[in-house]
């Protein structure tokens, strides 16, 4: 029997087993006091799931559509399995929700608090993160072009950049709150500081990346500085710039959330996390974490998607 057959036959049984185990874990007799038989059943499901996933991931499919579907299925099944284990263990063993709430509890909390989450999302992500990200990335890019043109700036600014990039965000955040007030501009300022230097350093490296032959070619055409910049050096720098944009997309969210711990109006993802931890309602903290994870992943994914389109010629994307 091939791996595929094993996987194909086992997968539906594993799914049925998951559903049964979930119902069992939530039933009043089992929840919080699951016996060895229940855990043996969960372990068996674990093994069966491992075999099924292994079979599926070794599968060689002929049509590209089926391959893409399978490529999507495997991580989804894998993630679902992790959530299943989390749910079953937390509910079955009766773990207190202060330590670790079950995914179902987090999910229902998420659904029940949508208006609050939306408000926090608008405050932290749309106002602080996006504005800070755009200002930070754009100014880092422009300063890189100036620094590339003026050698003493490049020599002076880059070491300083490394120094500032090494500053801890919890050090800068209170200072920015003092300078720009409690509302979102101070958070955006923290994001600007965090995103500026990765963009500066990457763009400067990217502008230096054009090969000697390619530069000589432009020189042989008697092309000026701006022509060379737009027709050769910026396209070559594009993969570096997108690298910075991707790094910054995650840095920006971290920066804005952490900055909200140091004084904020009564809204925002960081504010909510700090306040709900103090009130011991950890399911709300987890709901905010889930929100941050979803927003961060979508943001990163969007940047990566644009990158794929813009740098299709780069060896890592060529088809």
């Amino acid at each position: 029997m091939t791996g595929f057959h094993r996987g194909g036959i086992l997968a539906p049984f594993v799914l049925l087993g998951w559903i049964y185990a979930l119902i069992l874990a939530h039933s009043p007799n089992v929840a919080g006091q699951a016996g060895p038989v229940f855990w043996a059943f969960v372990s068996a499901l674990w093994l069966a799931a491992a075999v099924a996933l292994n079979g599926l991931s070794n599968l060689r499919l002929k049509t590209p559509g089926a391959r893409r579907f399978l490529g999507l299925c495997i991580p989804i099944l894998f993630g679902a399995f992790l959530f299943f284990l989390w749910e079953v263990i937390v509910v079955g063993a009766g773990v207190p929700s202060v330590l670790m709430p079950a995914p179902s509890a987090i999910g229902s909390r998420f659904a029940a608090s949508l208006p609050v989450l939306l408000e926090d999302f608008l405050q932290t992500f749309v106002k602080s993160v996006l504005s800070g990200y755009m200002i930070g990335c754009l100014s880092g890019f422009l300063v890189a072009i100036v620094a590339d043109r003026i050698p003493f700036l490049r020599r002076g600014l880059l070491p300083l950049g490394n120094f500032v990039a090494a500053l801890p965000v919890i050090g800068i955040a209170p200072i920015m709150v003092m300078w720009f007030g409690f509302d979102w501009p101070s958070k955006a300022a923290v994001v600007v500081v965090m995103t500026f230097f990765p963009m500066l350093v990457n763009t400067v490296a990217g502008l230096a990346a054009a090969g000697r032959l390619e530069r000589d070619l432009m020189r042989s055409y008697a092309a000026g500085y701006w022509t060379t910049l737009f027709k050769l050096r910026l396209p070559v720098a594009l993969p570096f710039i997108f690298n910075a944009l991707k790094i910054n997309s995650t840095l920006a969210l971290i920066g804005a959330i952490v900055a909200e711990f140091f004084g904020t109006p009564i809204v925002g993802m960081g504010f909510r996390i700090s306040i709900e931890v103090a009130r011991m309602s950890l399911d709300m903290v987890w709901a905010e974490i889930a929100l941050a994870a979803i927003a961060g992943s979508l943001f990163y994914g969007l940047v990566a998607l644009v990158e794929r389109g813009a740098t299709f010629w780069h060896p890592s994307y060529r088809t």
Binding site: G211, L213, L217, R219, S220, Y221, A222, P235, F312
Partner: peptide
């Protein structure tokens, strides 16, 4: 001569721009 674009230079490698 270069500024007047009197010559075409062909390098060891094609040096075509991949984009």
């Amino acid at each position: 001569a270069r500024v007047r674009r009197d010559y075409g230079f062909i390098f060891q490698a094609p040096a075509l721009y991949p984009w």
